[in-house]
Design a protein around this nucleic acid. Structure first.
Lengths: 293, 293
DNA sequence: GTTCCGCATGAATCGATAG
DNA sequence: ACTATCGATTCATGCGGAA
């Protein structure tokens, strides 16, 4: 089995990305710091400066991505003075000017959204997963994410009576033995552009707002084994660990030393050459990391 | 009981709206023809002309809406040459320049989305429900749309086994009859900004792309009895009939004579004064319409 | 009367074919 | 070349006819 590499960098993505080769990455999945959020770790980008801050980074990402690759950007605009901010829309418009294609917008429905009550709005329980591409033709392995018929994460939502449900279940059971080909044909369906996932419940100190299923789904969909996945805002490293487990090489960048050190610890020290901004082309490798959840 | 009025107009919204009084409407709920869609019934607005086409209408809607009122716009951008179009985003930006506040974006998750398979994308199963307001303070009756715990329109999305579902269902059923007060206390939660509804399928000839639950939910949330609801693209009149049933006055406009005549028929002829563009202030009233589904 | 199965039908999108 | 039309693909839902 080939060796799977996991490279991590400490520093500002805007700078670090410049050291990466052009047309070298198959998939970028990331959840950048949101405007005015996570001030303690990221300095807190002002909403009105957000586009200006992100564009140099997306410019480098475009260079680094393979022509067949995909960029998945997880983002959601915050509410400012009772109104949804427009910086995400403005960002999309500007990124198109940079040369990105805005191929699709997936919805991540967060089943257990952050609690709270306000007089003028309900809880926000969805986020955008913006898909950008460099070319109109790109790699997509749709069969890898097919789901049971009419069923995504066990959410059938059908108005079946209880007896109907029982009947259906037993039918599947019996039919499966007797007429496999029929059921194999009708068993799986392609998913849609709405993903139903819970946010990761964080017992640990450093929580990823990102559930592992999210990068996992996109890694399945847009890469194959030994491809290269990049997360320019790796945070606690969810994307990297998932990529590693799925036999994809990965590259992670973060400006926060705390995150960097934490991931460094989880990648077995004796086997890696840790990266500092100065020695950019060194490689790290890690042993297989066992599933966390 | 007070008399509930339902006024319908045949003509172009851009013109008809001018005849309505300023600050007179409590809620606007509408689903305008999408770009290049419904060519047979509407003209089929070109994607690149969409913003230009809609802005004069939204300008009048802003005038007509009460300061405490809300505008809900159901829309979704289409794919053009492999890319999501940007006209919806551009429309939001332009409407803000007109003076609208873009308060919120609800997601309508369509369980039964249009089928199909393509090499580069999955089925599109969500639409935008954009909430605009005239002022930052507006009427919102959140308690009216509280839902059974963890349940909105039977769309649980929870990781329940079938036996769990059966248990839960029977629990709600029995509890409701026997121990109402208990259930009132524990049973209700505020919803989120993600709505799970199926599209209404076949009502014979004229199918509403809009399920009744959609206007119903927003009418509950943003109006009280005897308020006025406006739908400037009434189509088959779903919004109006729902408003009527819920004891809200309503005003509907459509440019299609076929739709106009159809609704005219369903509003009992002997009791109404049908409206043509010339006699704009006449009133119609209809008998209670029974649920269709 | 139920319950069950077959079937038509969509706010879709792509790629090929035709003017 | 560039644009309009058409067939193929696909699946949740509700209807109608049948057991």
């Amino acid at each position: 089995m080939r060796e799977i590499k996991t490279d991590i960098f400490l520093g500002d993505s805007k700078d670090i990305l410049k050291s990466l080769k052009s047309n070298s990455v198959d998939l970028i999945v990331t959840s950048p710091p949101y405007a005015d959020q996570r001030k303690s770790t990221y300095g807190g980008i002002k909403a009105e400066k957000y586009v200006e801050w992100f564009l140099p980074i997306s410019h480098e990402l475009l260079r680094v991505l393979k022509p067949t690759g995909t960029f998945i950007l997880n983002i959601k605009e915050k509410v400012i003075e009772g109104e949804r901010s427009t910086y995400v829309m403005e960002l999309i418009l500007e990124m198109r000017k940079q040369g990105w294609y805005w191929t699709e917008e997936f919805i991540w429905h967060k089943k257990n959204s952050y609690p709270g009550k306000w007089p003028n709005r309900f809880r926000d329980s969805w986020e955008r997963l913006l898909q950008f591409n460099k070319e109109k033709k790109f790699n997509m392995y749709q069969e890898e994410v097919m789901v049971p018929m009419g069923d995504w994460a066990k959410s059938r939502l059908k108005n079946l009576s209880d007896t109907d449900k029982i009947r259906d279940t037993s039918k599947v059971g019996s039919g499966f033995g007797k007429n496999i080909s029929n059921w194999l044909l009708r068993d799986k369906a392609y998913p849609t552009n709405v993903l139903h996932l819970a946010t990761e419940c964080n017992n640990k100190k450093h929580s990823a707002a990102f559930p592992e299923e999210l990068p996992e789904w996109f890694i399945k969909l847009f890469t194959k084994e030994n491809d290269i996945v990049l997360d320019p805002f790796m945070g606690s490293g969810t994307t990297l660990f998932v990529a590693k487990r799925m036999m994809r090489h990965s590259i992670g960048i973060d400006i926060t030393k705390e995150y960097f050190d934490m991931i460094k610890k989880q990648i077995k020290p004796s086997e890696i050459y840790l990266l500092e901004p100065k020695n950019l082309y060194a490689k790290t490798k890690s042993k297989k990391r066992y599933a966390v959840r």
